[in-house]
Amino acid sequence: MHNSPLVSICIPTYNGQQFIAEAISSALAQTYKNLEIIVSDDASKDDTLSIIKNYTSKTQTPIHIFNHKPNGIGANWNNCLLKANGKYIKFLFQDDVLSPTCVEEMVEVLETNPHIGLVTSKRDFIVDKAHASKEVETWIETCGNLQRTLDLKVENNISIIDKSLLKSAEFLNPPRNKVGEPSIVMFRKDLVDKIGLFDENLKQILDCEYWYRILKYKDIAVIHKNLASFRLHANQATNVNNQNAITDYHAYNKILYSQYLKLLHPEVQKRLLRKYNLFYKVYYWVVDKFKAK
């Protein structure tokens, strides 16, 4: 690719020694070469950093390691964004793996389509044997194809999601994240100036909330090809969050009301207005009481 723009592969880490070597190796094995690797580490207590440092003398790809004071996963993700120099941001979590052509194929889409703000892809799953269960199988059936409920046109192996998704009756139906985990997306760094950083108050859905924030301004492209592998294991953040009674979905309704209301399906608008708008609370209370007579 001519005039290849710099891509920042951002790896937020914390006690990731079990899988970090595989993640770093997949980043360095990219067919696309104008890369930097940004590591933001939340005070790991294991060998995560020493494993990463071993790669610095084995590659010409810059690996920048930043020590970050722990303040939640969103703060660590945001530190990556703040330290990144690339035109494009490619997250890679410490337990996930990129396919060799992932960055190259995503950059191609973004460089040739200025209306696209973010590109995602399909993904494979790596399921740890100790974590295999009927529940995991069911999750893969439900979330294996994140766009399964959307009627997307496929052209040249790519589909486009525009902000009409927000108006769709399918928007809040499972799977809630219809774009993908951070390891399978790439987006334009300059969008950060427009939409801000990840919401650090969220723990579980801060990624899809961010993707939908992008969708308010730019379209999203879906490459119908598995370009990354998402690992499922007992210690990943999603499972830890599920055990800790995360309240993101209550906060998400308030975010939708305050930032997305006019873009949503009329029935969703009505539900949110009844919940959060005093005028509409009273109005619908009167209407419901009248109907009950």
Rank of each mutant, 00 (worst) to 15 (best):
D162C: 12
D193L: 12
K194Y: 09
E170N: 12
E209A: 08
S159Q: 09
P182T: 07
L197I: 01
L191D: 10
S168Y: 07
D162R: 14
N173G: 07
K167T: 11
R188C: 10
I195M: 06
K178R: 11
D207I: 04
K194V: 12
L166E: 11
I205C: 03
S164H: 15
D190E: 14
I184T: 13
G180W: 03
F187G: 02
K203P: 04
F198S: 05
P182Y: 04
R188P: 02
L197N: 01
I160F: 02
P174K: 10
E200I: 03
I214M: 06
G196K: 06
M186C: 12
K194I: 13
L206A: 05
D207T: 05
L202Y: 14
R188S: 04
K194N: 10
D162M: 10
I161N: 11
K194G: 07
M186P: 09
D162G: 15
Y210L: 00
S168V: 03
I161Q: 13
E209Y: 04
I160R: 01
L165W: 10
Y210V: 00
K203Y: 14
S183M: 13
R213L: 05
F187S: 00
V185I: 14
C208Q: 05
R213W: 11
F187W: 08
L191G: 06
I195Q: 04
F171M: 11
L172G: 08
E170F: 05
D162H: 15
E170K: 04
L172V: 08
D199Y: 05
L172N: 15
S159D: 07
Y212P: 00
V179M: 03
M186H: 03
L202Q: 08
K167Y: 11
Q204F: 10
L191K: 08
R188D: 02
V185D: 11
C208F: 14
F171Y: 13
Q204C: 06
K163G: 12
E200G: 00
R188L: 01
F171A: 03
K203D: 05
I161E: 08
S183W: 13
K163S: 15
S183T: 15
V185P: 08
R176C: 06
N173L: 15
P174G: 01
N201C: 04
N177K: 04
